[in-house]
Design a protein around this nucleic acid. Structure first.
Lengths: 195, 195
DNA sequence: AGCATTCTAGAATACGGATTCGCCAAAAGG
DNA sequence: CCTTTTGGCGAATCCGTATTCTAGAATGCT
């Protein structure tokens, strides 16, 4: 019952992602999204109530995708070296496999993408990081036997911030990641865990 | 000869910085900058030909300021441990002393701030990083006896990217830097230099 | 076929914000 | 005091974009 859809939400999200990555977040205009998807503007509004909502959903979709990769990765157990290696390798691989979304997430903050976060997505935003926070506490417990604030901070710095640092500048400049990067990052990560 | 200026360029740059930091780059409208500086919009245009030029100058001013801090810092000589300690300490101190500019530089890319870089500032942009690149090569030479591409990459990762990573997430969330952070960052930095 | 429903389509409209422009004010020199 | 020059001032204008609105098309149901 009803006409068969010609455009899906994901079509517009993909189009928006492409534009954001290529020409920056402010260049994501509804007209351009529509053009990139081969659709008229009205069809975009048929799927998304507003530009902010479109971008917010793009953000959520991207965050969910990285998170899934992070959560699905095998935990490192109580071996700091192993945890370091896996976290860094995972980050580098994910960036290589999802260049667009990597750029979106690493080079923009939510606020830069979405001017005013739509109420409709309020809850969505609230619980977004819970699973990752849990996983980090799990790592802290496995490595140090406790999930104290300090232990969690340490794990986050090592497993999140350092891989991030390894990748970010290159992602911004567009240069390829140098081959020695992984080794350095693992060393740094390991040191942060051990210290 | 001529009326005495009531507003200086820096007044508007400071106002713009405050708005960018508080409400994000897109919220930096000329009307708001003027209001924040207690001036009418016309006076802003008397100093800056366009919004892009204003933001570009703000960017350049901020970059110059960090660079000065980085360049003025005493070099670590051939001791990786010392170099690591100094780089991390410098970064943490600078962020603490210049919270506004730190947020501007660490949380925004140039492209997010300035839509289209004004031609008038073309050269200004070109040579902006030369001095820092030189300094990094100097560090590479002092530490490893050579400024090969790989050595420079290593030094940059350790002395720039890691301190950056240590600070960025907190800067975005607004939380204070945890006391153990410096120690972890130094350990990571040192490991990246030694490996 | 008639009807309800789900979409496509894109022209018309509304609006926020950058930029312009004409005019007034305050020094400084003669 | 008159003239020149540098600045302050802010209402009016212009433009790019988000958003709305009216039509029409495709599909399933009875």
């Amino acid at each position: 019952m009803g006409r068969r859809p010609k455009f899906a939400e994901d079509d517009f999200l993909d189009a928006a992602l492409g534009i954001a990555v290529a020409r920056g977040a402010p260049a994501v205009t509804i007209a351009d999204v529509a053009a990139a998807a081969g659709a008229p503007v009205g069809s975009v509004y048929h799927r998304f109530a507003s530009r902010d909502l479109l971008l917010a959903r793009l953000w959520v979709r991207s965050v969910r995708r990285v998170q899934r990769a992070f959560l699905d990765a095998p935990p490192g157990g109580d071996d700091p070296g192993l945890a370091a290696e896996r976290a860094v390798a995972l980050a580098l691989r994910w960036v290589a496999e999802h260049p667009g979304e990597a750029r979106l997430l690493l080079l923009h903050r939510r606020e830069d993408l979405v001017r005013r976060w739509p109420r409709e997505l309020g809850e969505e935003l609230a619980g977004l990081n819970d699973a990752v926070a849990d996983a980090l506490r799990g790592h802290a417990r496995a490595l140090y036997g406790r999930a104290s604030k300090e232990a969690v901070e340490r794990v986050t710095f090592a497993l999140v911030d350092i891989p991030y640092a390894a990748v970010r500048r290159r992602l911004a400049s567009g240069e390829p990641l140098p081959p020695t990067l992984e080794r350095m990052a693992v060393a740094a990560c390991r040191a942060a865990l051990a210290d």
